Amino acid sequence: MIAPAGSVDRIAAALHANGLVLRGGFNFAPVDAPPTGSSGAPAAALLLVGQAGAAPWPHFLRWREQQPQAITNPLDTWSHEVIGAVAETFGARAVSPSDKPYLPFQQWAMRAEGLKPSPLGILMHPHYGLWHAYRGALLFDDELPVQAAESGPHLCDSCVEKPCLKSCPVEAYSAQGFAYQSCLAHVRGANGEPCRSGGCLDRNACPYGTAYRYPPEVQGFHMASFAAVDLIETQP
């Protein structure tokens, strides 16, 4: 069975009320071995939920003010609550990138939106650049009137200078991948304050999607979470 087209629009509107957006979707094929939907049977369709720029931030901050200060992973918790409420309303199962065992969110995103990875591993979006994220997905028992997007030109292919690989003081990103420990040590160290307060220098060097760049307080929040430090006074 295929759900009516208007249901997708209503879901988008419900997410938009919290600064979130639908990031595409598709119907599973039998060979996909999809995760289960709300009924416990293999899901028939998926809608990705995410953000473009920092639109969810004010909604998250208002929610955070009402929560205990010691709450663990507050952004994940907020995302679970918001997306879970939408899932309950529309008869879907909500899943998150942080759920274990991990689900193939990056593969789903590439399929749904036709995106490809940047040299930093973040998917390059033709409008948002690197300033977007996936917060969850909705799994449905019935097919939806959606289809996977075709891949378009990859912005990174036409970027000759690759400033995203030249701005990190410890060259954390390279053709060999992400040097996690080097990055972490630098961010936590005496010379890591620019990264702690303003975010990843390589990511900020990318020339695409700058209108959607996260404000410094948002980047500082994410960096503090990554490095397990409490250094940004403006973070919730």
Rank of each mutant, 00 (worst) to 15 (best):
H59N: 00
R64D: 11
Y180V: 10
L130Y: 01
P56D: 03
G192N: 01
P126R: 15
P153C: 05
I71R: 10
A172G: 10
D142C: 08
F221D: 08
L165D: 02
G152F: 13
A3E: 01
E233T: 04
A54D: 15
E143Q: 07
C195P: 02
S98Q: 08
C159F: 01
A185R: 11
A33K: 15
S79N: 12
P4D: 02
I122H: 05
A148W: 02
Q235P: 08
M223Q: 09
G24T: 00
G53Y: 12
G6L: 07
Q66P: 09
E193A: 06
A133D: 06
V187T: 01
I11R: 04
S39V: 12
G198E: 09
Q106V: 14
K162F: 15
A14K: 03
A149Y: 04
L231N: 07
E217D: 06
A85T: 00
S7P: 09
E233G: 08
Q219S: 10
A211N: 15
A85K: 00
E161L: 14
Q66V: 15
L231M: 10
Y173K: 14
R23G: 03
P101Y: 11
E150F: 09
L15M: 09
T210E: 14
L115I: 12
L61K: 07
F178N: 01
A94P: 04
A172K: 00
F140Q: 06
S96C: 00
G37K: 03
H80V: 04
R62L: 07
G50M: 02
N73I: 07
G121A: 10
K100P: 02
E217R: 13
I83G: 00
P126G: 08
L139R: 11
A29V: 06
M110N: 13
A87M: 02
N191A: 10
M223L: 13
S98E: 05
H16E: 15
A44D: 14
